[in-house]
């Protein structure tokens, strides 16, 4: 309940530090920022674990209410963004892939085409770009919706009705965003690679579609598929956690919502970059 939530996330400490008078020395300021960052990480970690617990424990609870909400979130974080992602895939293909193919062809390095495409598009650009775009489009909306609901007392109303706010508000968003980012990344990668070849073809690069896609297929290993799935699901999970945490897990007033939205997006980008770094290490190790 309310008191327990506040204790779990040490919100009082967070608020005290955020609203305290600015320290006079830079070292004190740095110390405060560091402490705030640690408290935020602690809060995010606790929130992520609570959400995971609720997903596992309550997957059979109120399915007739929660499943339509999950479908709605998949639509919002996936299907509804498809037109935008088709455009981005075409643009990415023309701007990046086409030029890379053309440049490699000029220096006679088309043998490296497959591995270059896999590293640039499949491993890095596809997942990261998708995550950042979904964060901007859906993550921001999450913070604003949940922050407004929190400020208007709707979360207390859910608790009064015996409805777990994490189950009703967070779980559908987390699942929807994880599946949405996973699916959109696949479409983005396929779209970018296909449009990249079209661009290369228009530039008279002597490369047949068969050779082009054969090289890419040969450069792809089972690990790429596994890590791509893991990475995109992790991006979706953590973006949803960060945005929902800032919208829901702290007492808000209406005037706080915009400030919190900016903070959530910034932290969302940082989380994506950190996760990406973790996966780079995984790629290098395996």
């Amino acid at each position: 309940m309310r008191g327990n939530l506040a204790k779990t996330f040490h919100l009082t400490n967070l608020q005290v530090f955020r609203h305290a008078v600015a320290p006079k020395s830079y070292t004190d300021l740095l110390g405060r920022k560091l402490f705030l960052a640690l408290l935020t990480i602690q809060g995010l970690g606790a929130f992520a674990l609570i959400t995971l617990g609720v997903i596992l424990k309550k997957h059979r609870v109120a399915r007739s209410v929660v499943q339509p909400r999950i479908r709605h979130e998949i639509n919002r974080a996936g299907v509804a963004l498809l037109p935008m992602f088709i455009f981005i895939a075409l643009a990415l293909g023309f701007l990046v892939v086409g030029q890379t193919v053309s440049a490699l062809a000029k220096v006679g390095a088309t043998d490296y085409l497959g591995s270059t495409m896999v590293i640039v598009i499949v491993r890095e650009l596809g997942p990261l770009l998708t995550a950042v775009l979904v964060l901007a489009r859906v993550g921001t909306a999450n913070v604003i919706e949940l922050g407004t609901a929190r400020a208007l007392g709707e979360v207390e109303a859910l608790e009064a009705l015996g409805i777990d706010p994490v189950h009703y508000l967070i779980v559908p968003r987390v699942i929807g965003m994880a599946l949405g980012i996973f699916s959109l990344t696949i479409y983005l990668i396929i779209g970018a690679l296909a449009s990249g070849w079209v661009f290369a073809f228009l530039q008279d690069v002597p490369l047949t579609p068969g050779d082009y896609f054969k090289q890419i297929a040969e450069a792809l290993g089972w690990l790429d598929f596994a890590l791509l799935a893991l990475k995109t699901l992790a991006f979706g999970f953590f973006i949803a956690i960060v945005t929902c945490y800032h919208g829901l897990a702290q007492p808000l007033r209406l005037e706080d919502v915009s400030r919190v939205a900016v903070r959530a997006v910034t932290q969302g980008v940082i989380v994506c970059v950190l996760l990406d770094a973790v996966f780079i290490v995984l790629y290098l190790v395996t």
């Binding site: 109120a62 208007l152 009705l161 015996g162």
Partner: peptide
Amino acid sequence: GGQLFSQLTVAENVALPLRYQKNL
């Protein structure tokens, strides 16, 4: 203030606790 769920209609607001608790 009522604290009704702003995204839902009146009927959906009233139905929500019943649907959630009894899985209807």
